[in-house]
Structures are given as structure tokens and as C-alpha cells.
Design a protein around this nucleic acid. Structure first.
Lengths: 139, 139
DNA sequence: TATAAATTTATACTTTGTCAATATTTATAT
DNA sequence: ATATAAATATTGACAAAGTATAAATTTATA
């Protein structure tokens, strides 16, 4: 069993119950949820947690690279970081898919004078499932 | 002088005054504005335009690849498309910079069964200017 | 000119995220 | 163990970003 407390301690983050719950939720629900989805889900079995705590915690976790912040054309999504992979965003159903295909990597820490903290591919399109539903009848 | 009407007609989009104004604004203000910034600016000299029209128009233009939608950790930004380049987002000042450096290109129209409409790099970090202001004192 | 189609407006609403003040919990020193 | 300080969490208000819908206006077409 994973020790969320250890993961947090390793980064010098005090492992409060809320932080552990958010981390556990992301580990066990690999569906790239938004902050609000995380908030609502945790609230169900842990009703005193507040929205601001979830937002604060997600920022803290992603600053410390314990979770990854995924940029999409709508809200930010979050993913428990294990190994490097990419994401595909479907404009129809708004789901985010993991992409394990090998894509050219971009390992830079500086570009044109700017300090780079992270680089993501944003692959946007229409997912397999949505294509099947309509027979590819999107334009 | 550029003919915005022609650009629109080429894509079979009826060139209404609002659409021309939005396109003109993006052409003449290459600062990667958000939809709301565009709305407010146009409204100043063209006060009857409505917010929904700007949002509708931007969606129409980006679906037709006349403008590019730039994904950032906060709002969507828009850019008049001329030649392919990348973008850098500063988490401090929230400005978006054009990046003309050569980055490995990813020309795919399909990945793991999903249909790809567009691929962007999202380069996130702290920009030159903000670094200078603080002597690089960000963590 | 009448009608239909496309576009725009206005407004209300939802979602997403931030902020600030207060309250609670935890850690530290006495 | 208790007082104090520091760190966290809560609440609620707020702001920004974007969507939806119905009504109004404009444009195209018969």
C-alpha cells in the first residue's frame, strides 16, 4: 500500500488529513478530474472539507510536482504523477486521455530568455469513442 | 492592406461587421488577448457589440483556423494565425510570448485512435522581464 | 414584400477560481 | 500542561470566464 504521508513528508509538506485525502483521491481515480470534481467527490464521504482547501492543496501538490496540472481548453485537470506521458483532450466529451505513444521530448529549462518550469503537449481533437458515436461525422 | 472580408469569404463565413472587427482587432493587436479583453476593447469604439457575439465569433474563427486558440493555465487567448510558432506563458505576469525557436514538430492527425485537430506546446514558466524584476528570486 | 434563415443582443446562469477574515489545529517554548 | 505563535482550514463573498436561451434584428430568398 502506498504511503501518501511519506510522499508528502519527502517534499517537506505537512501531511494533513485533507492533503492525504486529495492525494489518495487522485491516485485512486485516474480520470483527470478538475478541482471541483475532486472537491465534490471528497466532500461526499468527508463533508467538512472546503473548496478553498482543495484548491490550495492542488496548487501545493503541483508546485511540488507530486501531481501534474493538465492544461485544457476548459478547466485545469489534475493527474497523479508516476511516469511521464501526454494527454489528449476531446472537444466533444471533454474527457482527457493518457497518451503513451512516444512523442519527441522537449527538455529545456530556458527559451528565448524565459525560465521554463514545465512543458506539455496539448493534443486536442475528437476521441475514439465520440468518433464512433457519430461515424466520424464531425467537421 | 489586408482584406478581412476576403479571409472570411475564403472560408465561407459571411463577413459581418462584427466578425471583421474581431479579426481586425486580432491582426492589429498581437498581444494574445483573452476573449473578454477583445470584447472590452472593441466595445470602446463599437459599443453595441455583445459579449456573446465575441465569444461566438472567436469560436467560429478558430474552428476555421483563421485565428489560433492558445491554451494557458488560466483563460484561453487568441492569436491571428500567420506562420506556425509556439507560445510561452508567464505564471507571474500572465503574459503570453511568441516563441520562434525551432522546436521538434509534431505533425499528426491521429494518435491512439483519436482524431487530432491541433497540437500545441504549452511552455510554462517565468518570463525574462519578471526574472529581471526579482533577480530570479522565484522558486 | 412576405417569409425564412442567419446573426446579434440581452440577460441570466454556471463553472472556475481567488481572496480575506475568522476559526481551528498544530508546534514550540516556558 | 499551558500560553503563544505559526500553520492550516473554513466560510462566504467575489471576480473572471464562458455558456445557454429567448427575443430582436438583420439579411437573403421566393
Amino acid at each position: 500500500m502506498k504511503s501518501y504521508m511519506q510522499i508528502l513528508r519527502k517534499k517537506n509538506i505537512k501531511p494533513t488529513i485533507h492533503r492525504i485525502k486529495v492525494l489518495e483521491y487522485l491516485d485512486k481515480n485516474r480520470v483527470h478530474p478538475s478541482a471541483d470534481e475532486i472537491y465534490k467527490s471528497i466532500k461526499e464521504y468527508f463533508p467538512t472539507i472546503s473548496r478553498a482547501t482543495v484548491y490550495n492543496t492542488l496548487n501545493l501538490l503541483s508546485e511540488n510536482k507530486i501531481v501534474e496540472e493538465i492544461i485544457t481548453p476548459d478547466a485545469l485537470r489534475y493527474d497523479f504523477v508516476e511516469k511521464q506521458h501526454h494527454h489528449f483532450y476531446c472537444t466533444e466529451c471533454r474527457k482527457v486521455y493518457d497518451i503513451h505513444a512516444e512523442l519527441p521530448e522537449l527538455e529545456i529549462d530556458e527559451v528565448e530568455g524565459h525560465k521554463v518550469m514545465s512543458v506539455q503537449y496539448c493534443i486536442v481533437g475528437i476521441c475514439k469513442e465520440c468518433l464512433e458515436k457519430t461515424g466520424g461525422g464531425f467537421k
